[in-house]
Amino acid sequence: MMNIPPLSRLTSRRHWIGLACAALCAAGSPLAFAQDYPNKPVKLVVPYPPGGPTDIVARAVAQKLQERLGQPFVIDNKPGAGANLGAEAVARSAPDGYTLVVATTAHAINPALFAKLNYSLTKDFAPISQLTGGPLVIVASPALPANNVAELIALAKSKSGGLNYGSSGNGQSTHLSAELFSAMAGIKMNHVPYKGSAPALTDVMGGQVDLMFDTMLSSMPHVKGGKLKALAVTSAQRSAVAPDLPTVAESGLPGYEAIAWNGLLAPAGTPREVIARLSTELKAVLESPDIRQRFDAQGFGAAWSAPAAYGAFLQAEVDKWARVVKTSGAKID
């Protein structure tokens, strides 16, 4: 004879099975995943060596995210191949929000500059937010007979063979910003690439090259020390770091604008809820007074943006720099 459990026991058993299933389903849902995120350390890949502007931004942001989210945000410096090495590594990482990359202007330039890339900036990543944005500054030796943009353009037109300008490397913003300037001004300038800003600035100070478009972080201390003179900033508005320094656009080249920026990307396919969580936290971080003051003092302002807005910004940057690369003829195999 079958032993049939009482109805109350069956009901109770079904109740607990139902609760268990619901819990399992909730645990596996994107919303629950986002609420639980992060539950282990998060790696921020910086595709540059330690100590540079991108590394400085990444470490400041990582510290604040760690304080807010209660998990370590670990910096992993992975330089090489024009910042492509670190970006490629993250593009191939698991799309779970635990491996992110700090992108820069170079990543928008590289699709047009490199003959072949093993990743797509606009297809292999999910945009989270811009982090910073700031101008470059045109600096020259104090001996250069030009004290503003109009005089610089006139000098370049009058000098046989054109002026020579240094950069921190082929395809960097310090290179292509000068090429954009040359194209818009209708002048010739000869590119002299260096391995980083420091040796390039040394040669500008020594008069081996005429000028450089460089970050304010690395060049303004030399301007304040009298070893360089600053002609203009490359942003659409003046910089709070040097409010008396005019923009390129207002001092002889209307419409010119070039900024250096950092942003945060995750691998494509990362859950939208995780992207939203990171975006929300970054908004709080980048709007905090101490971060804003710290970044402003270094010449790059905090610049939070929603994921969709940052994605649109990336596409616009890719399109813009593709035109500049084509005009300049720059190429890296």
Rank of each mutant, 00 (worst) to 15 (best):
A32I: 00
I138C: 03
M189Q: 15
T132Q: 13
L85R: 12
D296R: 06
A62Y: 01
E151N: 05
M216D: 02
I291G: 02
A94V: 14
N77P: 12
L7T: 15
H222A: 15
H175K: 10
A302K: 01
F114Y: 15
P6V: 15
V101P: 01
A20H: 03
A316W: 02
E257L: 08
G301R: 09
K320P: 02
V137D: 00
R277A: 06
E317R: 12
R92D: 04
W304Q: 08
I187V: 14
A260I: 10
R323Y: 08
A198W: 10
Q208Y: 09
A306Q: 07
V274E: 02
G301K: 09
R14L: 15
L121T: 03
T174A: 11
S279A: 12
G161H: 07
L201E: 04
P5M: 05
L217V: 08
A185D: 02
A178W: 06
P6C: 15
G252L: 06
R14F: 14
G133R: 08
S235P: 01
V42M: 02
H222K: 12
P267L: 09
P267M: 07
F125E: 00
T234D: 12
L113H: 03
L278D: 02
K326Y: 09
F114H: 15
I109R: 09
P267D: 06
P289K: 03
G169F: 00
A236V: 12
T11R: 14
L19H: 04
G225M: 10
A34C: 09
L136D: 00
L282N: 03
R14Y: 15
V46G: 04
L131H: 02
G18Q: 11
R13A: 15
I109V: 13
A249S: 13
G311Y: 01
Q35F: 08
T202F: 13
R277S: 03
A94L: 13
V318G: 10
A22V: 09
Q208L: 12
G252N: 07
S141L: 08
V223F: 02
E287Q: 15
I153A: 01
G225A: 15
P289G: 04
A260K: 11
N190Q: 13
R59Y: 10
V325L: 04
N164R: 11
V204P: 04
N147R: 13
N77Y: 05
G269M: 11
H191Y: 07
A27D: 09
G226I: 08
A112G: 06
S288Q: 05
A232W: 01
L19Y: 11
T54M: 13
G252C: 09
I332G: 01
Q130V: 05
V139G: 04
D55I: 03
D76K: 10
S160Q: 14
L265N: 04
A89F: 13
P127G: 00
S235M: 07
K227L: 14
G299Q: 02
V61H: 00
E67K: 12
R59D: 14
K159P: 02
L211H: 02
M184C: 07
A108K: 01
T280P: 03
